[in-house]
Design a binder for these strands. Structure first.
Length: 479
RNA sequence: GGCCCCGUCGUCUAGUGGUGAAGACUCCGGAUUUUCGAUCCGGGAACGGGAGUUCGAUUCUCCCCGGGGCUACCA
């Protein structure tokens, strides 16, 4: 326990929260919650062109859905501009930073002509300094060492580093400067972020040094890649937290899965509740190699979480999912009695791996399938000569079943199957299609019980009607 | 190009100077079965390559190869 520990999650609102960003947030959160320390949420919006309020909303929304909370913030980095300016002036005054109007193209050209050296500008003074960017002076000798909890000591030779631009000509500061100032002001003790920032770290350390501040400890996480081994992006399917939510994953499952991407418990346990994660997670057990995001494993894990949910929780997740993605279905579902909603969840609970898969399987309990429009291929596959007769007999059996529950229905329908001497599938599949409009549904006995006697028989009758049109005279041929 | 990071089954991880290199997902086969799933059982599958250190390297060092990141008046 270390309640003096302060970590931060600092996303840039230039898009939705990516899976990689979500994992970074999670790791910071786990470290904070496991130590009694504080998590600060800081929005890195110094790029006014690309940062939008909508993106900030999306990020907050994604963190909320993941159930990751924070102790301070959200703090807009952009709103701290006066403070950044103040610190910048200090460096300008001390000579640690200077005005330089050289363009990027010119620096590149300079580097071509001066291989093995970092660019050093010539300070501009007086009127000439107007309209020039500000660079940080990097020492010509020695090295800057990043002491990283995951990578060990990473050394960067100062002579090789360019003097980085830390503020634009208009005075607005750049990322590497703002980050260092903010991390210092917010007394961040541990920076846990993506590996893509490792190369930025020496620049930030140099800012700390110039400012006379003590830098935090660092931990750079391995990046997340897509199945093709390249950096995770849109074309790999679900790449943002919102997409994960739309795909029907549960927040707890996503947290569990994300935690395992780059980290493993000492005993290599796979299923870990958030509580266990908080207790067992440790940054020095994080691996060094980039991890590939594999949705198959997430699906499996999610299925486990789905099945282990209590029924009322299951129902709430389904309702929330429908509300977000299928408003019409949400209304229909909400209008049904609570008992019916819970029963629907009960009969699919061991089938669906994601919340998105639930409604298509149980919609028939809440809306009438149009028997005349059942897919022709499905219909032909299931409805054979003799089906009409068997459905009639099944309807008769159903009419007499008492009580109308899954066990009794199964007992009596199996009695019919035995009496007819046919394969169970010849009786059960036509019933399935008749009541659900599909050849894929939850268990048939449970489905009949959930639907109730009246509606079940009515749907059987409707199917018999369609069969009468399609297969006239089939009654005489039991097949 | 320069600088930096990384490299155990297809994937995520565990692990050790001497192991039959372990688990999970996927995949394949089988069982169960009223559909799809789910479930159960079984199987296949890895230390990137080359030197060196060592009695012995997957483990330590170097080189190569491969992948990735940074190299912006982006973050």
């Amino acid at each position: 326990m270390d309640d003096s520990l302060r970590v931060r999650f600092a996303p840039s609102p230039t898009g939705a929260l990516h899976i990689g960003g979500a994992r970074t947030a999670l790791y910071n959160w786990l470290v904070a919650r496991g130590s009694g320390g504080a998590l600060i949420l800081r929005i890195e919006d110094t790029d006014r062109e690309r940062s939008t309020a909508a993106n900030v909303e999306q990020i907050l929304d994604a963190l909320g859905w993941l159930e990751l909370d924070w102790d301070e913030g959200p703090i807009s980095q952009h709103e701290r501009a006066p403070r950044h300016r103040e610190r910048l002036e200090e460096l300008l005054a001390s000579g640690a930073a200077y005005r330089d109007a050289t363009t990027g193209a010119e620096v590149q050209a300079w580097r071509r002509d001066n291989p093995g050296r970092g660019y050093r500008g010539t300070p501009l003074t007086g009127a000439a300094a107007g309209g020039a960017a500000v660079r940080l002076r990097v020492p010509d000798g020695g090295e800057t060492i990043v002491s990283d909890a995951i990578r060990g000591e990473v050394r960067f030779e100062n002579a090789l580093q360019d003097d980085p631009v830390i503020a634009r000509a208009d005075g607005s500061v750049l990322y590497n400067f703002a980050v260092a100032v903010d991390d210092a002001d917010m007394r961040i003790t541990d920076v846990i972020r993506g590996d893509d920032h490792l190369s930025n770290t020496p620049r930030q350390l140099l800012v700390f040094e110039a400012l006379g501040e003590v830098p935090p400890r660092y931990a750079h996480l391995p990046l997340l890649h897509g199945p093709d081994g390249r950096k995770l992006s849109k074309r790999h399917g679900a790449a943002s937290v919102q997409e994960l939510r739309e795909a029907g994953y549960l927040p707890a499952a996503v947290r569990n899965y994300l935690a395992l991407l780059g980290w493993g418990a000492a005993d290599d346990e796979t299923i870990l509740s958030t509580d266990e994660l908080v207790h067992r997670f440790s940054i020095d057990r994080v691996g060094r190699a980039a991890a590939i995001f594999d949705e198959k494993k997430l699906r499996w894990l999610n299925g486990r979480y789905m099945r282990e949910q209590p029924l009322d929780r299951y129902e709430a997740e389904l309702a929330a999912y429908l509300e977000r993605n299928e408003p019409a279905a949400a209304t229909t579902f909400a209008a049904a009695p609570a008992a019916a909603r819970l029963q629907a969840c009960a009969i699919v609970s061991d089938k669906a791996q994601t919340v998105a898969e639930v409604w298509p399987l149980v919609a028939f309990l809440f809306t009438e399938p149009d028997i005349e429009r059942v897919d022709e291929k499905v219909w032909r596959k299931v409805m054979k000569p003799g089906s009409r007769s068997l459905l009639r007999k099944a309807a008769t059996v159903l009419a007499a079943i008492d009580p109308f529950d899954a066990e009794t229905i199964e007992r009596d329908l199996r009695g019919l199957i035995d009496a007819e001497g046919v394969a169970a599938t010849r009786v059960l599949q036509p019933i399935r299609v008749a009541i659900s409009g599909s050849n894929v549904s939850p268990g048939i006995f449970e489905s009949l019980a959930a639907l109730g006697r009246g509606r079940s028989i009515a749907r059987l009758d409707r199917a018999i009607g369609r069969l009468g049109d399609a297969l006239p005279g089939d009654d005489s041929d039991p097949g």
